[in-house]
Design a protein around this nucleic acid. Sequence first.
DNA 1: AGTGAGTAAGACCGGTCTGTCTGTACCCGA
DNA 2: TCGGGTACAGACAGACCGGTCTTACTCACT
Lengths: 206, 206
Amino acid sequence: MNRDGETTLPPADDHAALAGRRADSHERILAVAYDLFSRRGVRDVGVNELIERSGVAKATFYRHFPSKDSLVLAFLEQRDQLWTVNAIVAQAKLRGTTPKDQLLAIFDVFGEWFRQDDFEACSFINILLEMGPAHPLGLASIDYLSRIRGHVQALAEQAGLDRPEDFARSWHILMKGSIVSASEGDTLAAKRAQQMAGWLIEHHSG
Amino acid sequence: MNRDGETTLPPADDHAALAGRRADSHERILAVAYDLFSRRGVRDVGVNELIERSGVAKATFYRHFPSKDSLVLAFLEQRDQLWTVNAIVAQAKLRGTTPKDQLLAIFDVFGEWFRQDDFEACSFINILLEMGPAHPLGLASIDYLSRIRGHVQALAEQAGLDRPEDFARSWHILMKGSIVSASEGDTLAAKRAQQMAGWLIEHHSG
DNA sequence: AGTGAGTAAGACCGGTCTGTCTGTACCCGA
DNA sequence: TCGGGTACAGACAGACCGGTCTTACTCACT
């Protein structure tokens, strides 16, 4: 819904500068929101701070995003693209040759992610637990978490594993558990999860 | 630090009624806090609501707990006792005969817990992710999570498993991952984790 | 030159938050 | 009978929240 700012708003519009400014504001707000929300969570970052940091007027903010929650939804969508797709899935596919190797490589990527000094855990889990599963933002987080499971399930199907959905759900338990353990400070959490992930692959291999 | 209200405050004190009233207020606040914090999280429950629900004056509240955070710390301590020890560990020990069975029974208890209609996830994980690992409450949560791991490690040692600490850390990944999955609505998360837990026991059995 | 859309800056609204402080009533032992 | 400690009730402070609205400015297009 938010990529409209770039594609559909100035479709055959030749007001390049005007459209550019609008897109600038929109994307600048979103970039600031991505940075702050992913590092500090949703509740801890107020609208006023977002406005100040993105150098935008309050009216402009509310023109682009009718509420804070709608900005959070846009943030979640971008998080799905930048983190889930680009940072995890694409990286894992680059590192493995076979689908099984690509699955296991997820935890290699996790291992490096966990070691970052500004490791910020998983925004989808954070927001789900922070807002609860009944809140619209919690529901959206559940949806994006299911997309992660979808990537795993697709790789499981490519690998010819048995019961790919059950496989993906168990795999996801290992992913989420290792993330929480990393939040506690266990830097070897990815390795531990990867070991169990190997057993899971074995038990789903025909 | 908070059970003092019952034991050390009126040690040789014969003012029974006075001491009783003090303890009443203290424990009434704590009981309300336990209910609200565990169901809705720490940030979502304000001091005013705690005061109103426990039928206590604000000054009385701040006499017993100098700050909201100190009440949260007392809540975490009670959560460790009522949930970790009494509801999970003790229950699991009741259900299993051997240490290995007792370990696996943890996920039987989890399965029933996940199915409760007012399933509220794990307060330690919630607060850790909500406040961050640097916040005093996050640090306290990390400590209580490590106590859970300590219970697992003790059972692993009784079972004669290899490298009990590594075992407990991997086991804990399964526990935490299944809790997050249950928050998403996967009611079979406990069964999935239990299956992987069985493989983990095998690989740590001499 | 004038118009209108978009902008920045920020006052303002009602409400919430944690925490302090005042006033009043009770009960107890001296 | 009176003083001290505790209790309740609630006003209050100061900060922040999300969100609305006003004002003045810029700038592209007619």
